[in-house]
Every structure is written in structure tokens, then in C-alpha cells.
Design a protein around this nucleic acid. Sequence first.
DNA 1: TTCCCCGCTTTTGTTGACAATCCATCCTCA
DNA 2: TGAGGATGGATTGTCAACAAAAGCGGGGAA
Lengths: 233, 233
Amino acid sequence: MPEQTKKENVVTLSDSGTLSDRVCNQLKEDIITGRLEQGAKIKEEELARVHGISRGPLREAIRRLEGMHLVQRIPHAGARVVTLTRKMMSDIYRVREALEGMSARLAAENMSAEEIEALWELLESHEKNIEKTDGKVYFQREGDVDFHFRIAQASGNDWLIHHLSSELYQLIRMCRYRSALHPSRPVNALAEHRHIVEAIAAGDGELAELLMRRHISGAWQIVKDLLPRESHD
Amino acid sequence: MPEQTKKENVVTLSDSGTLSDRVCNQLKEDIITGRLEQGAKIKEEELARVHGISRGPLREAIRRLEGMHLVQRIPHAGARVVTLTRKMMSDIYRVREALEGMSARLAAENMSAEEIEALWELLESHEKNIEKTDGKVYFQREGDVDFHFRIAQASGNDWLIHHLSSELYQLIRMCRYRSALHPSRPVNALAEHRHIVEAIAAGDGELAELLMRRHISGAWQIVKDLLPRESHD
DNA sequence: TTCCCCGCTTTTGTTGACAATCCATCCTCA
DNA sequence: TGAGGATGGATTGTCAACAAAAGCGGGGAA
């Protein structure tokens, strides 16, 4: 299944749609995983040459990345990879708290029995992954995103789904690639995820929201201490 | 000062920055005000000719509008102006409820005495405008956006500020241009705005959030009945 | 020595032409 | 007569060359 996923990604990245879409996804991953480091200047000609395309599609890709807040652009002066400041991350986690809290509440109200069952299975597979990898890598990075993504999906609110999965989660992932997470966190997170699913299964939206907010707030407490110190603020 | 502002706007729209930025703003207004009607197909060549530019910058502008959810694009099949469905508006108002509730709470915690004073003045000027125009046009369309915009600004959360003002408010404006608002609404809204400012001035974040959520929820109740009926859903 | 101005290089913004794709229409054949 | 495929037109995707602006480095003057 991991190979399946990987292959699908490769296909998605290499032959789907337009050059612009392709290179946009590629750049997105490069930025998130740190291959393109924060604050790096983006030179159109160079990047275009590296990716084997012309500057036209590349510029369109950059405009889209700009919309996702992965690059910042100044007219006539070029674009740079966004720099995740402490404040920016703090702002994002706060908003995420509100949005995912809402998401959990709606999920509790809307989710079908089958979907809840699938959630349980997801958690089980996460648990196995933690055992396998000794709780270090897999779960933190993508597994957690999976979980939150499914709950967002279940909310049924398209705006919520889109902004959580297309914007916030990307920045969260970026933040994680920048600062390796605390080793003991996955186990705690898994327990918290369980409680959230329990609340959802019970149809208790209020509790689900509360637990989700607390879960994210706790995550921020952990993450913020791992963020590299900044000279100013 | 109004003339100053106006002139600045004109300059911003007519000669600032790149062609792409200019035409992007122009198209944004065209879409919001309905000059480009919902669901209309966007033909690149035609639009480029109309705006007197080439297709390159126009395509970049469209990519940005796509990021703002003002147009929807399908690869190789072109872009269309977004169609505001009932569900989409409902989703947006729900999210707005959470986001602006949070915004009001943060504003209550952060706003300085001067900013609060400025808010009061804004409300007074709105009241005068209502008297002048008999409560019909000005306040509903831009005045209300002004009020919410200022509170978002006061939250100090950049993500909140950006998404409320650059995305949600645009769609709200678009919705309003589509369905003329209920005449009696501005007076009610003004009273609600007053109560919110009172809570903010008292530093009562919890109350400010509650009142703001109720305010927006009430607005949705009014708006939804005015939305044109849809055949499906 | 330090500051400012000028010209050069680099990089971004813009354009028009070319290639690939899709859509609609019409023609053919069962 | 209807279905299916081919063909032509329209539209989007891509490219490479041109124009304009910003950053730079050197030289001269106070």
C-alpha cells in the first residue's frame, strides 16, 4: 500500500494535466520537505531550466503557490520561499484550533457508521506503524495528517475541507519537516485521536470539538518549543 | 481624505504594478459586482483583447483568481466564473461564524483604547449614512465589510486577517450584489455592531465572540431566504 | 574615506507565434 | 433513421524572443 501510494504520487507528479500543474505540485513538495529552503530566492529562468520547462508555465505555478502562501512575491523583485516565523506558526495553530474544532463537531453530527468504522481502522493501522517504526517517523508526518484530513472530509463543509487540506495542512507539514517532533508525541497523539473518535462515534459534537481543540493546542505547545529560535521576536 | 483614498484606488487599479495585478483586481471587481456573471465561460483571448493585454499576464491573473475561489478551472477546458450555490454560501457563513467569533474574541483582548474609539466613530458615521440614504444601500454593502474588516485587523492574527478580508469578504460581497438585502437589516445590524463594540470595549472576549457569532448567524438567516432558488438541492 | 551617480548585468514582465487538445458539426454506414 | 467516427474550428497550453525594471559595481567628487 505504501508502494501503491508512492507510485500514484509519481504518476500524479510526472504526467498528469498541464506542465504548470505538474511543476506546481513538484515545487510544493520541494518547499514543504525543505529541498527548497525557506527564504530562498526563486529565479524563474533557473527553475524553469531545472524542471525542463519554459518560464510561462513556471510563472503560473508560482502564482498558485503564492495563493497557497508557500511563496511570497514582490512585483519586479521576484519571489522567495516563505519563511515560517514563530508568529506565523502560532497564528496558524490558533486558527486551526477553531477550524478543526468546528470540523470535529460537524463530523460528530454527520458521520455514518461506515465512515466511523473506517476511522477506527485507520487508527489501528497507525498504532501498528508506531510499533513497527518505534513511534518515530511515519505517524508524525503523514499519519496525523491523514487522520485530520478524514475528519475534515466528514464535516461536509467544502470550504473547511479545502482550506484545511490545501493550505493549513501543507504549512503544518512544512513546520514538521523543519523541526523533528518529540519522540513521545505520537503515542500521546494516538490516545487523543482515540478519544476524539469515541466522541464522534457517540455523536457528541460538543465533546468532539473540545477534545480536538485541546489536542491541537497541546500539539502547538510541543511544536513551539522545537521551533528554531529567532533573533527578532 | 475621501478623495485621496479614491484617487489612490484609481491609481491602484489603473497603473500600479504589473499588468497581471491590475487586470486581476479589475476582474475581481467585475466578478463580485456581477459584470461578469456567474458561471460565465472565460475566454482568454477575448478577455485579453478587452483589457488590452496579452494572454500571458491574463492567465496569471486567472490563476490568482482561482486561488481566491472566484473562478473554477478545468485543465484543457477553460475557466468559468464561480457559481455561488446555496450550499457554498451556507458553508461560508458557517466558517465565517467560527472565524469572526474568534476574531472578535481576540479583538476584545488586544484592542487599544484608540482603536476602540475609532470603531465607535466608524459606527457613528454608519449611522449617519443610514439616515442619509434611508438605510438602504451604503451600509449594507461596504460599511458592514468595513466594520468586520477592522475587527479582523484588530485580532492581530495575520492568517485570520488575510483569509477573512481577501477571501471570505469578497464572496460575501458577491453574494450581496446578487441578492439585494432586506431593507430593515441595516438598522438591526447597526444595533448588533454596537453591542459587539461594547463587549470589546469591556474586554469581554467571550461575550464579543458570542455576539459576533449570533450576528453572523442572524445575517445568514436573512440572506438565505433572499438567495435565488435552485433547481437541484 | 565616504557618498553619490552612472552604466552594465541580471532578472522580471510582456508579447506574439506555435503546438496540442477539446468540442461541435457533419458525413457515412449499418 | 440513428449511431459512430472523422474533420474543421475554436480554445487552451507552451515556447522563445523582446522590453522594462531592479540590483550591482565601479568611478569620480566632496
